Amino acid sequence: MTIITKVTSQKRKGRYNIFIDNEYAFSVSEKILTQFRLLKGTELTSEKIAQIKEAEADSKATELALNYLSYQPRTIAEVKQYLKDKEISEETSESAIADLEDLGYLDDSAFAKLFIKNNLRIGKDGQNSIRNKLLRKGVDENIIEDSLFEINDEDWIKSGLRLIHSLIHQQGKLASKEIERKAKNKLLSHGFSNELIANIISELDLQNDAEEQIEALKKQGAKVYRRYRNEDSFTRQQKVKRYLYQHGFSSSEIDSFLKGELVDLSEIDEA
């Protein structure tokens, strides 16, 4: 049996040094000091000391995790990795995480729902990108799927429309088919499903009126016609045709341009 002969406070607030038989033994937080009533004259067995040290380790791990969580929400896997980086044992880490789950500070289901909600409010990712991001954060796949299932298609469509909003202003500069192609590629790259992409595109009025389509053809045609000015006439026309066709203009529209019906081609060379 050993006896606590002195208890002193550290410079660090809330920390205390425990002396046994007039020699420093270990330090504890105020929580552990109070929990075990570590006062001068208290008798301790070796088993009790081991219990105190274990509780102190758990308390430290919980404190570290809470501090980590104070900056932003985290997943269980992220907290576990953080504690591992801080050289907290796996057993102690698991105990701290269990305590935080019981207290409601750690909840991967709530995290996933909040993550998706924030993306729908200000982000630009579709279901596939969000799914991959949550998987990388260590969220269980079943939790992710359950959380995604709760979201209505209308909410995804709003997010998708926000993503491609800037492309709508390209009307009159690009062919309507080119705008649609760019929109589809952008949505696909941000993880929207093909079904959702079709729904998002259907919400748009991507059909240029005749005047806008002609204006877009003039701009795109002049740009590419000028680019190939050093080619012979046949090669130049073939390259211009291929470029404009790939950028959404019809054969008849391209022929009108190359015949000079929309713009004087000689003026393009002089520009």
Score class of each variant (00 low, 15 high):
E261Q: 13
E231V: 04
D99K: 10
K173F: 13
E267M: 07
S59M: 08
K186R: 14
L66T: 14
A55D: 05
R162K: 14
V263E: 13
R162G: 14
R121F: 07
S166N: 15
S29W: 07
A183M: 08
A271S: 10
N17P: 00
K60I: 14
K84R: 07
E261D: 12
R236A: 03
G221W: 07
L148A: 12
M1Q: 11
S266R: 14
K48N: 08
R236C: 06
N128Y: 02
G191M: 01
S233N: 03
L66A: 05
Y105C: 04
E101S: 01
I76R: 11
G14C: 06
L217M: 05
A77D: 14
G260W: 07
R131C: 08
D146H: 13
W156S: 00
K11M: 12
F19R: 03
K133F: 09
E154G: 02
H165N: 12
Q72V: 14
S59K: 03
I4G: 04
G260A: 10
G14T: 09
D209N: 14
L39I: 15
S147V: 12
V7C: 00
L134M: 06
K124V: 09
K60Y: 15
G260V: 10
L188F: 05
K177Y: 13
L217H: 06
S193E: 11
E180V: 02
Y82I: 10
Y68M: 10
E178S: 11
A50Y: 12
S89Y: 13
L106F: 04
S202E: 15
Y82L: 05
Y68L: 07
R162Q: 10
E23H: 12
K113G: 02
S256C: 01
L33F: 12
E43W: 04
Y225M: 03
I200K: 02
L161V: 03
E145L: 02
S147H: 11
K6R: 02
K137I: 02
I200D: 01
I164F: 11
